[in-house]
Design a binder for these strands. Structure first.
Lengths: 156, 156
DNA sequence: ACAACTGTAACCTCCGTAGTTACATAACCG
DNA sequence: CGGTTATGTAACTACGGAGGTTACAGTTGT
């Protein structure tokens, strides 16, 4: 299963936009610098996010992308559907042999199985919002207990 | 997301083996005929299924593949993990910019999000067994009501 | 006019997958 | 024993989707 990193990029970009909200549009070069990729990759991503109604973009000087809704109102499944094209499963590339009792009916059964798995995946994503992602990142930086400092314990 | 059809092939093959249980091994040529692909594709699949303990194979004349357990005891998530290598999501191919507050922490947050989505997907698959697939195929052929006969209603 | 942006086309490279051919190996049968 | 029927794998091709890159037309604010 060859996966794409578009979903990861999208969450990353939207998280930056959430932090830079109220400070005007963010240009693709800046976002590309944070994601560490090419600005065109970001712009292609922004186009999809704009079509999904998650952001607005503005051309021209001092333009850029802006988050439309509050991070609490952006569920991750919406981001997923906005940027991910295919499905994690694929059917038979060639039609199976219909003279075999299995080949005759397997495709419709698999369609249903795939749909329910896909639905479960999206439901899991729907349980989190962009605000949850931001909170998790903040919690990483400032753990409530001072335990589990990974390295640099020399000056204890 | 470029998906693979290995899972579809695997369910198909195991369904055939379930139907042909008690009648000895099934050879890869026969399975390839039902799936409508090359026998080598089937053999590569059978190797994975054998490593997962789902089937046994026997070389030589009148050899072939045999289902080990009862179809009721084979959950689809086990098949999924047996044949599918990658995950539906991918992280940043290049490490994000750690000087950006988002780039510094996004990967670990996404790891957790991906894991929960993956877990939800596999749980959905785990709710079905190979026997359920066989039952669904049988139900397709013989609907409990005589409604919805697709074509050939001429001789009513 | 100029500079700073987006939007998009065109192209490249890389990688995973299905498909194909070929062949070594193993089991069964006469 | 030798022949037949299988699996198990290696080696190769073709194809498609992905990220990446360059280039450029269009748009907006100063």
């Amino acid at each position: 299963m060859a996966s794409s990193c578009r979903f990861a990029f999208a969450v990353h970009v939207l998280a930056v936009l959430a932090l830079k909200r109220e400070s005007g549009g963010v240009c693709s070069d800046l976002l590309a610098g944070s994601v560490n990729t090419n600005p065109v990759i970001i712009r292609r991503l922004l186009t999809r996010l704009r079509h999904a109604g998650l952001i607005t973009t503005q051309k021209g000087s001092c333009g850029g992308a802006t988050l439309v809704a509050a991070p609490e109102d952006i569920r991750l499944d919406v981001i997923y559907r906005a940027v991910e094209t295919g499905v994690p499963f694929a059917q038979h590339p060639q039609q199976p042999n219909k003279r075999c009792p299995v080949g005759a009916g397997i495709e419709r059964v698999l369609d249903e199985v795939f749909a329910s798995a896909q639905s479960a995946l999206e439901s899991a994503l729907a349980r989190r919002t962009l605000a949850d992602v931001l909170a998790a990142m903040a919690a990483e930086k400032a753990p409530r207990r001072s335990a589990a400092r990974p390295t640099k314990r020399k000056a204890a």
